[in-house]
Computed example of a mutant assay.
Amino acid sequence: MTDLRNTPVAYPSQGAPFVIRAERASDVVAREALLDACFGENRLKRTCQRLRDERAPAEGLSLSAVRKDGQLVGTVRLWHVSAGGVPALILGPLAVDPDCRKLGVGATLMARALAAARSRGHCAVILLGDAPYYARFGFSTEKTAELMLPGAFERERLLGLELDAGALDGAWGMIVPTGAAAKPKTRTRTSRARKAARLVTHAA
């Protein structure tokens, strides 16, 4: 089983000045600011948020991209769900600072997250996002046509990836959360977080 905190970090080929590591408690304020700026303050009303409310992320599958100066420039989390009775993970939110969009932060976060999920024995990952972007990682609508989310969503954006061939065969019905309950916490918002601009996102 891979411990991301002790895993050597390989920089992207273009030598971007960032590392991918396990999310830390000290990342929370910066992460919330990044997500607020990326998705807006109504992000907690989005359909996929219903699968994350009051749930803890899957163990070992919350990652941060951090510059050498300590600035958080990217984040991704995965969560336990049942995809019509099939155990799976749902990925998101994925958010990246636009100053790093050409440095491969999003792609590196995705690669590390999927590798970690596979190493921990997970068999399938689902997300709601742009098909052209996620196709490069193997996501498609091939196995998600019979799945539903607890709210409005665009069918062509519901994508799946089998980490084990056939893992999503026959998946049908509502996607529901199955993760452990989250510990109570107080969200921190600042005017700077609400006014932060020029941030880009890929997955809701």
Results as ranks from 00 to 15, higher is better:
A181G: 00
L163P: 02
T201Q: 12
R194N: 06
I175P: 00
V66F: 12
G160D: 05
A83P: 13
P132D: 06
V73G: 01
A117P: 02
A107N: 10
G92M: 09
P177S: 01
I126M: 10
A171N: 03
K185E: 01
F153I: 01
L72A: 04
R50Q: 14
A196L: 00
L91F: 14
P93T: 07
A124I: 01
S82K: 07
L147H: 11
E23C: 07
A10Q: 01
L127C: 05
D53M: 13
K195V: 05
G92T: 13
E154W: 07
P87S: 03
E32S: 08
E41G: 13
V66Y: 07
G173V: 09
E146K: 10
R52S: 04
R55W: 09
C38L: 09
A30R: 12
A65G: 07
V9P: 06
R50T: 15
V19R: 00
R187H: 09
S82T: 12
R21M: 03
P98E: 09
G40P: 03
P132V: 06
S140F: 02
A135R: 07
C100W: 10
V19L: 09
R55M: 04
R187F: 12
R192W: 11
A152F: 10
P57R: 03
A203M: 15
R189T: 04
S82M: 09
K45D: 14
A115E: 04
L94A: 05
A204I: 14
V81E: 03
E162K: 00
D164K: 00
E23I: 06
D97S: 15
L35I: 15
E41A: 09
C123Y: 09
P177L: 14
A16Y: 04
L72C: 05
L159K: 03
G104Q: 06
S26F: 02
E32W: 14
G151T: 02
S64E: 13
A111G: 07
A25V: 00
G74N: 08
A107T: 14
G60A: 03
T108E: 14
Y11L: 01
V19D: 12
E156L: 07
V28D: 09
I20C: 06
E41T: 08
C123P: 06
W79C: 07
T47W: 15
E54A: 03
P184M: 01
L34T: 08
A37G: 01
L128I: 15
